[in-house]
Design a protein around this nucleic acid. Structure first.
Lengths: 139, 139
DNA sequence: TTACCTGCAAAACATTTGCAGTTCT
DNA sequence: AGAACTGCAAATGTTTTGCAGGTAA
């Protein structure tokens, strides 16, 4: 599906800033913060402001185009990958990695259990594992 | 085990502020923020400062006496319950509830999978489900 | 045209830090 | 006595907000 059309469909205007932000976010696996995005786009978009990045991320989040992560670093991180996947945060360097392990069976299992034992209907979840990444383990 | 002794064992001094903070935290299921703790203790400890609450929570965290949660509210929340349990955050009121459902089987399953498929050794994890709590669903 | 968006600057929060004085051990 | 802790105030870092001008539809 087409992101440009989806934005219009949701009543959001399509601006160069928004295209740049979404395109950067959907082409990285690094889970950048608002400031990371701002700094990376600045060379090619010199007039971009940090406030616009924040506002845009907020708009994208409310129409479900991206997801926001809180892993305890003091800042939020953003992910355009909406598939239900977990993350691994390195306790040393702070990098956030996708957990490339299929946990859908276990997750569905838990959600079924919650549905039967509790009166909560889960909307979504955030699953974060903390570890030391292979690179940091070496040094 | 005795918390007072544990603090001394870990080289931390036992002060009235620390006792008040730990005692408050271990007697609640509300997962308070630093400021929540400060405000609740202020009537009985009028000289307590917010900076001390932050410093104390940080000390407690580093000796593994409490755990810090980041659920995306913009502030950190604290929990003296160290058992490996998940949380449910209400998308409406923001309250954080313990998920009183045993997910240890599924969790061990996932960790085993990570251990065999990836070279990450998991230290700990944070599992947060988002939903609307029964109270908010009514209104 | 008009409603929405951008960029700027200021404001609002959450958290950390430095320091002088106090309190545990 | 000595090291660590507290409280205060100032500083820091992240995110939000208000507003005037600009841009997409």
């Amino acid at each position: 599906m087409n992101t440009v059309e989806y934005l219009r469909e949701q009543g959001l205007k399509v601006t160069p800033q928004r295209i740049a932000i979404y395109s950067m976010l959907s082409n990285t696996k690094s889970h950048p913060s608002a400031e990371d995005i701002y700094k990376e786009l600045l060379p090619t978009n010199p007039s971009m402001s940090l406030a616009t990045v924040y506002k845009t991320l907020d708009s994208f989040k409310s129409i479900g185009l991206i997801q926001e992560l809180s892993v305890g670093s003091g800042k939020n991180n953003y992910d355009a990958d909406l598939s239900s996947h977990a993350h691994i945060v390195c306790l040393d360097c702070g990098n956030i990695y996708d957990l490339e392990v299929d946990i859908s069976n276990q997750l569905n299992n838990i959600k079924d259990k919650i549905a039967t034992e509790k009166s909560f209907i889960i909307s979504h979840q955030q699953i974060t594992f903390y570890s030391v990444c292979p690179t940091c383990k070496k040094s």
